[in-house]
Each structure stands twice: as structure tokens, then as C-alpha cells.
Write a protein that binds this DNA or RNA. Structure first.
Lengths: 238, 238
DNA sequence: CGCTCGCTTGAAAAATATCAAAATCTGTGG
DNA sequence: CCACAGATTTTGATATTTTTCAAGCGAGCG
């Protein structure tokens, strides 16, 4: 079982131009590092919809997702969706900068921040890995901003689906369908739309035969050209 | 002259709850570290409007702003405004993830990435400082996303002005007026609006007597209550 | 098997995008 | 220091698009 070894942090390496397939994510930690972290970590579970911590709560632990999807939000707006291999609860000491909630049943490692920092202080490699991970989060936050700057709902949705597909590929999963594990209201909050507008955007893409969906959680890109035309943040017309 | 000492990285410390005034930014580097960086840095200047590097260009150097404002953009959308004490051009090796352009005349340190990484590898403290800086950038990118998720133009503008004011305060400058160094089209691109909509948003805030401005670059908050009511990402009504 | 919660749909109102023209600003050169 | 030309910003009138508010559906759950 891959989960038995301890926390795993996955990210696309920002240096190392010579990595196998571009965009592929790597496990950043060595077995040794994972073992060290495992010593201070405990495995915790959250039910779907359960709050993990609130905005502004005193931050005492970081989490590393083993399985499931977590939603990070702030002031009613979804900031990011976190997946297995992601780290969260970090980078704010004192208090958490945003709230988090389980979008699906979640299993995660929970690591006390104090112990974590102690390990980081004595381990330059971990430091670097943390930097890599932060860079990845930063890139993603910026992609989110570009998405949100789009003016048309259908464009935002297409970009979002493109991001999801991309993430799925980076995780090594199949791309034949895009799997949306979160509910519509979370997606709407991520896209800066009302659920009504999101629903209509889905309908627009479907009726234009750009995507198809067999249920709320699975979407398939039918017309790749049109999809890319929409999703690639075309600076021009649309 | 404070600039004679070498690169300076400013950030709000994420740990250290016990810092003097909350929100105040600190110089992260020791004199020794600055001296080390100074050895590999050269001072460069850019004219207003000049491109510093293009999106996707081969990344060979990082920059640290001494004076002026830089705009980072991607696909026609402004991702961030960078100020003195900020670092950019980092975190992408291989190629720059976004383009940058001088919004005002800019003076900066230019540091070859290769040399920079060599220094980082041998200096755990610098590592930590880099982490702190990345956390700050991440927080800011997330704030940007929250801003963009707002549906009303006036709300986005008010939040933007609030952010600018906050940054100004963190830099220790006066807050009696908000100084907008960039042009309207950059602000519009940052807010995900057209310049026309941005102009009307300004007008709306002015006619509602929430702000006043003596020219394009200086804005004053007149009705603080109304301003805060708008800018504080009110999850509720508006 | 009924019920709740979440998603979809409708119709009307509000807001922004568009496109184009007028006003202002900037900085350049006389 | 002033005048001018180009560029930026503002304003107007319309067309789109999204939000709102509310009612209908449907799927999943107890």
C-alpha cells in the first residue's frame, strides 16, 4: 500500500528541465523523509462536507491528503481544490488564512506545526521540497486568477475543465473523462459565478456539443478544437 | 542609501506571531546574505512600458526591485503588481511563466538563476526566507482570486484600492492618499474588467462620495465606513 | 418510499461588454 | 514655458450576459 509509507508530497518540478514527460508530478520526499514525517503524523478522517478548520482559527497542524478532495475557501469564495499529495494548513502560523472542508470523504495525515517546523529546520532538502510545492501552488493560484479574469461564464467553465483534466493527467489518471468530485456550488464559488449561471454554462457547452456528460460528476470533451479555443484564455475576441 | 547594500527582500513574517505591528513587512535578508547576493547581482534599469521578459522566454535571471513598479501578466491579464523589495522571475526555471513589463521607470537587481541557486543550496537561512516570500506571494495571489470572484465592478475596485492602501501601509508610507502608479488599463486587466467598466466604477465610487481623487494617480478614501463595507468581501448581499 | 437538498429552468432586472466618439493627459519639441 | 500630437481615459448608446428570485425536478439518503 502506497499509503503505509508516510506523507507524500507531489508536485511538478520547477527546475529539472530534463524530466520525462512534461507536466508530470513527482513524489518529492525520500523514503527517509517520509518516515521522519510519519513519526509526527497521525491519520485522520473527515466525512463529506465536514469542516476541517475554520478561517482565522488557531493553526496548530498541517495536513497532507491521502485520499479525497478538500475545498479551501475564504469569504464564501473557493480558493482551491486540494487533492491527494497536496499539503495544506501551512504557511500561516498563528492562524489559518482560509477555511477548509471535505468535498468528499477524506483521509489525511495530520502533522503538528511545531514538530513539522522542527524537522524542517534540520533538513535542507525538505526545505527545497517545500519551496517546490509552494511554487506549484503559486502557479495554480495564478492560473485561477487568469480564469477568473475571463468575462464569459462558458469560457471560465471550459478553462476550469481544462485545469481539472490537466491535473488528472498529472496524477497519471485516465483522461477519457473528466471527473468532477466536488459539487456544483463549490465549482460555482471557484469560478465566481452563481450556481444558476454555472448550470447554464454547462448547458451551453453541452448544447453546442463541445462537451457531454453522463451525470453530474463525469464530463467528456467531445469537440476538442472548440474546447481548446474556449479554454486557452484567448486574449483576442473570446 | 539603503540601496547600496544589495538585494532586499521584504515580506510579512508568517510565523513569529509576536512581531511589532501586525502586517508590517520586514527585510528578510541579513547584511551578510545581501552582500553575497550583491556579488552576483548587477543593477539594471527599464523605461516605463518596457518589457522585462516575455511569457515563455528562457529564464536565466531573477530580479529584485529597487525602485518602481513592475506588472506581471499572462495572456493579457495582469497577475500582479510588483513593488520595491519584491522578487520576480523566480520559480519557473526553463521558462518564465509570465511576462513582465515596467509600469513606471524601474531600477532592479538582476541575478543569474544559476548563481542564485548555487547560493541557495549552501544557505539554509536563505531557503527559509524564500519560503516566507513565496508564502506571501501565495497569500496575495489568493487575495487576488477573492477579489476577482466578486461580481460587482465597484466592489472589485474598492477591494483593489484596499489592497493598495494596505501594501502602502506595510511599506511604511503614508496612507492619507492611495498612490496608483500603474495606468488604468493595467488596473482594468488586474480586475478583470474593461477600461470602460473600470472608469465607470471609479465614477460610481466618486459620485457616491466614497472616494475622491485629485488626478488619475491619487485617490483618497472619503467615506471609510462605506468603503470598508464594499471592500471587505462581504459574503452577504453585496 | 417519501423527503430533503441540490441542480436546473424561467422571466425580469441589473450590470457589464461593445463600439465609437469626445475629452484629457503626457511628454516632446519649439 | 507653451503648443501640439499621440495615447489614454472618459462618456454615450446598445446589445449581451449574468444576477435575482422563485418555482420545478431529480437523485440520493434515511
Amino acid at each position: 500500500m502506497k499509503h503505509a509509507t508516510g506523507p507524500a508530497i507531489h508536485a511538478v518540478h520547477p527546475w529539472d528541465p530534463g524530466n520525462p514527460e512534461k507536466g508530470a508530478r513527482h513524489q518529492l520526499l525520500s523514503d527517509d523523509e517520509r518516515a521522519k514525517l510519519a513519526k509526527i503524523a497521525q491519520i485522520v478522517r473527515f466525512a463529506k462536507g465536514q469542516e476541517i478548520y475554520g478561517e482565522g482559527a488557531v493553526a496548530d497542524a498541517a495536513f497532507n491528503i491521502i485520499d479525497g478532495v478538500v475545498v479551501a475557501y475564504r469569504a464564501e469564495h473557493v480558493i482551491s481544490f486540494l487533492h491527494p499529495g497536496d499539503l495544506f494548513g501551512l504557511s500561516e502560523e498563528g492562524q489559518y488564512a482560509n477555511a477548509t472542508r471535505a468535498a468528499t470523504p477524506v483521509t489525511a495525515y495530520k502533522m503538528p506545526l511545531a514538530a513539522l517546523r522542527r524537522i524542517l529546520a534540520n533538513n535542507a532538502d525538505l526545505d527545497v521540497n517545500l519551496i517546490i510545492k509552494l511554487c506549484e501552488e503559486l502557479r495554480e493560484a495564478q492560473r485561477h486568477a487568469v480564469l477568473l479574469a475571463q468575462k464569459r461564464a462558458a469560457t471560465r467553465l471550459a478553462m476550469f475543465l481544462g485545469l481539472q483534466e490537466h491535473l488528472q493527467a498529472a496524477r497519471g489518471e485516465s483522461i477519457s473523462e473528466i471527473h468532477l468530485q466536488m459539487d456544483r456550488s463549490s465549482i460555482a464559488a471557484y469560478l465566481g459565478l452563481t450556481t444558476a449561471a454555472l448550470s447554464r454554462a454547462f448547458r451551453a457547452l453541452i448544447s453546442r456539443k463541445i462537451i457531454a456528460s453522463r451525470n453530474l460528476h463525469f464530463v467528456k470533451v467531445v469537440d476538442r478544437d472548440a474546447f481548446v479555443r474556449l479554454a486557452d484564455a484567448s486574449p483576442d475576441g473570446n
